[in-house]
């Protein structure tokens, strides 16, 4: 029995090695003195220096992050209210219909999303560039936000809303003071997911971006088609580091599930209960 456990762990280790090898391979060669990804001749920071001197590439990195930040913000706002709308749709069939419509973009291949958005933007006469890319990123991030927020709404105790209404709260007050604080962890998780969706996307952006606007993925694609440049390796090392930070952040959010403010509220509530 013990031997089998060892073998299975060995297998898992192998899977991990295969999953991480290419990533560390990239990072390793980003320090290579020779300009190739095959022979390691000596340690250097040269490629990082070229990276930080390459203003065009840095501009693209900045664009990509701005895009992710903005699109995630818009998608989170629209998606959270959308989740509320779905939750408060009383008819079961209607609710399921909206939900399946919501999920269409989740399951569609990127190429289809990209191609159909390209047709849409041309049909509407929209100029291809930053605005078209932003609109598409918002569009494909909304469903994941909805899926993150909806479970939180389902967990919520509906009598809290009744109580708020009985106490004379208006619709907006109910949303702001009761519903929103409750669903905040879901909203934050949704924002994170939308952010990473936007950072990761290549195919959709590739279709709907014009000549003027480029994101990191598209830039890497065009450079990789020309061959190897260790500047990209240096960039990938930094991107990996950033992903690690994001993952740790996300892990804390999903683990804690309660924000500080909520914890405080909970604590206060229990203190009040003790007093009674």
């Amino acid at each position: 029995m013990k031997k089998r456990v060892k073998w299975s762990n060995f297998y898992l280790l192998l899977v991990f090695i295969v999953l991480y090898l290419p990533i560390f391979y990239l990072i390793f060669y980003s320090f290579n003195q020779a300009g190739t990804m095959s022979q390691f001749t000596g340690f250097t920071f040269e490629h990082y220096r070229t990276l930080f001197a390459d203003t065009r590439l840095l501009g693209i990195v900045l664009n990509t992050f701005m895009l992710a930040f903005l699109s995630a913000l818009l998608a989170t706002a629209i998606g959270s209210f959308g989740a509320m709308a779905i939750y408060y749709t009383k008819k079961r069939e209607a609710r399921n219909a909206i939900l399946s419509l919501n999920n269409i973009l989740m399951v569609s291949p990127d190429v289809i999303i990209g191609a159909s958005f390209l047709i849409l933007f041309t049909f509407l006469g929209l100029h291809l560039g930053f605005s078209s890319v932003l609109l598409s990123h918002v569009a494909f991030s909304i469903p994941i936000v909805v899926l993150m927020v909806l479970p939180k709404l389902k967990e919520m105790n509906d009598s809290m809303i009744d109580a708020a209404r009985d106490l004379g709260a208006s619709n907006w007050q109910v949303i702001r003071k009761v519903i929103f604080p409750y669903i905040t962890p879901g909203v934050i998780a949704g924002y994170f997911m939308a952010f990473t969706y936007s950072l990761d996307d290549f195919a959709v952006t590739f279709f709907v971006t014009g000549n003027g606007f480029t994101t990191l993925s598209v830039e890497i694609y065009s450079r990789a088609r020309q061959g190897i440049s260790l500047e990209i390796n240096a960039l990938s090392a930094l991107v990996f580091l950033f992903s690690m930070i994001l993952v740790v952040g996300y892990y804390y959010i999903s683990q804690g599930n309660l924000t500080k403010k909520q914890r405080k509220i909970r604590q206060e509530q229990s203190e009040v209960a003790d007093l009674l």
Partner: peptide
């Protein structure tokens, strides 16, 4: 990690 970076690693 961006899919294109992983593809790029395999080119190497």
């Amino acid at each position: 990690v961006n899919l294109l970076l992983k593809a790029y690693a395999f080119i190497g």
